[in-house]
């Protein structure tokens, strides 16, 4: 089996290895031909440069991305789980209609919302702030479907018992049901965090002040204009990628399960 997959393993692995290797190669040696697969001499000069250059505040962009993705994920978890719970467990007039409205919206391509959402955020003076990223992202409805399914599957007796004990509906949601769907919450968190961490397109539209840029835009800046230094771009790519890959290595099982779960829920 491994033999059959060997070509694919090589194809997947080589570009990632190449990026890591080039991050540790001096600018002068970036253009050596034929390619040297081990940096000689290895150097940290690229990293020193990107972390020292005030015009390229990479550490800052990294922290910005972390902040944007973390807060955004929390917002999405909160709004999606509230609605997912309501659609699975609570009754209210118009429930079916509202749910099919959400389903229908999955058919609409995001492209059509870009310009009006941008103009709206501009009128609200929210451009160049992270609100412009969080709130449109939290409007996405995919998380509701994932969580609704899971809320359905938990037995009602727990809730009934809590109700008899006089717990209000919000407390039942928060203290009883939410902990029971941890698996789905984790899946949604991974999915949302990665989407926010990696997104380039929307931040490119709504963010322009250099100090508040996120890492993906920073990486594009790194390889445009006067900064077109390959070593720096690779070092930036390394910084953006390695924390994610390390996190992935530690939690691979749960991440794979979570992403599969999120993927299957869409059906």
């Amino acid at each position: 089996m491994w033999l059959i997959f060997l070509p694919l393993i090589v194809v997947i692995f080589v570009p990632i290895y190449y990026m890591i290797m080039m991050a540790f190669t001096t600018e002068a040696n970036q253009y050596l031909w034929p390619i040297r697969w081990i940096p000689q001499p290895g150097t940290l000069q690229n990293f020193r440069k990107i972390f020292a250059d005030p015009l390229l505040p990479l550490a800052r962009w990294f922290m910005n991305s972390l902040f944007v993705a973390s807060v955004g994920t929390l917002i999405i978890l909160f709004t999606s789980s509230l609605s997912g719970y309501a659609f699975a467990r609570l009754e209210f007039p118009g429930k079916r209609f509202l749910f099919s409205l959400l389903l229908f919206s999955l058919m609409i391509p995001v492209a059509i919302t870009l310009i009006p959402a941008f103009l709206l955020l501009r009128d609200l003076k929210l451009l160049d702030s992270y609100h412009a990223i969080w709130w449109p992202a939290a409007a996405s409805v995919t998380g509701i479907f994932l969580l609704r399914q899971h809320f359905y599957s938990i037995p009602t007796d727990l809730e009934d018992a809590a109700r008899v004990d006089g717990a209000g509906r919000f407390r039942i949601y928060w203290q009883i049901c939410l902990p029971l769907v941890r698996g789905s919450l984790f899946a949604l968190a991974i999915f949302s965090f990665l989407a926010l961490w990696n997104d380039l397109f929307w931040p490119l539209i709504v963010l322009s002040k250099q100090t508040i840029l996120t890492l993906p835009i920073g990486l594009v800046v790194l390889q445009q204009g006067s900064y077109v230094q390959r070593g720096l771009a690779f070092a930036g790519a390394f910084v953006a990628t390695i924390p994610i890959l390390i996190f992935y290595a530690f939690f691979q099982r749960r991440i794979i399960a979570g992403i599969t779960m999120a993927g299957m829920a869409g059906q």
Binding site: L82, S83, T113, A117, L120
Partner: peptide, 28 residues
């Protein structure tokens, strides 16, 4: 009795209306 249940879907639907439904109509 059911009216407070709307509060659960309110945050999502405000965002949904502001950043999805309204932009679709507005875009056209």
């Amino acid at each position: 009795d059911q009216l407070p249940n709307y509060l659960f879907i309110l945050p999502q639907f405000i965002l949904f209306a502001v950043f999805l439904l309204y932009p679709i109509a507005r875009g056209m």
